[in-house]
Design a protein around this nucleic acid. Structure first.
Lengths: 158, 158
DNA sequence: GGCGCGCTACTCGGATACGTCTTGTCCGAGTACGACTGG
DNA sequence: CCAGTCGTACTCGGACAAGACGTATCCGAGTAGCGCGCC
């Protein structure tokens, strides 16, 4: 899986509760990652409609929806693309014993097994929202951790 | 996901019920795919212990275990490798607000969400065995389809 | 005729190039803020 | 003092290279079967 997904999810978590736009450069400094590459990920989030991008001085990114309505699956699909991981090449229709097309009206058994597994994966990710992640972090490390992050995003001192 | 996984699963299904070794070249002709590349996948299956490889004239590959004891997950892990799709880079320990290592005794919330989703994916794939795939194909397309495949593998006429 | 030996041909196995996708980077388009100027 | 306007500096956005991984291939190591020769 693309490594940029991790950055995107962490950025979405950090953006919760921040009303003013946060530039990509600030998010990059927060996580100590490549500024230009993270900008690329944020652009993907903006294209998917998960965040709003405002330009000009004191511009940046803001969550487009409340954190309760942004699932981890949304972020993963925004970065990785909507196409499924497994693509069936219809090997049963090739070779000397190829099946006729009318025998292949439904997906083959292998394809269905892979599809079911990916559906389970998506269902699991769909059930976790950014708000859930925030609540988990608050419960594990205390609410002051994310509060400090939000404060730093508003006025970074580095 | 690697495209060779599909070939490997189809080959395992085709190998069910065949007692004598089947060469990689025969499996390649059956599916009309690259002979050398499929050989690479079969080598991975042999390394993982899913199939036994016998050399010499009239050699080839045989299933090492009964089809009921080979899950689709086994095949996927044999081809793709055992490492998880998502790798946590511990971004929380980097940057100006880095968390101390003693605060990171357990995996971060993002990591756990990804791990849970991958576990769901693996559980789904673990629940489907090669025997299940064979039964599905027999039920959908009739038992003669796989019978013809087995017969062709024993004495290919191409 | 039976047995042992060597040869051959076929198999797998790992080491080797190529293509494509992810990763990482750069520069241009656009815009909001701020300062300046005139009324 | 206030409003309009211009300039600037900061932002995002898409287009552009480098590296890594999956894809595809080749040749060498090994072995089982087969034929031949010998007993």
């Amino acid at each position: 899986m693309s490594g940029g997904v991790e950055w995107a999810v962490h950025c979405c978590v950090a953006l919760t509760g921040v009303t003013e736009p946060v530039p990509a450069a600030t998010l990059a400094r927060l996580n100590d990652v490549s500024m230009t590459y993270l900008a690329k990920q944020m652009q993907a989030l903006a294209r998917a409609g998960l965040v709003h991008s405002v330009q000009g001085k004191s511009g940046g990114y803001v969550l487009a929806r409340p954190a309760e309505r942004i699932s981890v699956l949304d972020i993963v699909l925004a970065i990785e693309g909507p196409e499924p991981q497994f693509t069936c090449t219809e090997v049963r229709q090739r070779g000397p014993l190829a099946a006729s097309p009318e025998q292949c009206l439904q997906a083959c058994a292998v394809h269905r097994a892979m599809l079911a597994a990916e559906q389970a994966w998506r269902t699991s990710l769909r059930g976790v929202t950014v708000a859930d992640l925030v609540a988990t972090v608050d419960r594990d490390s205390g609410p002051d951790v994310l509060s400090r992050v939000r404060g730093w995003l508003v006025s970074p001192t580095d």
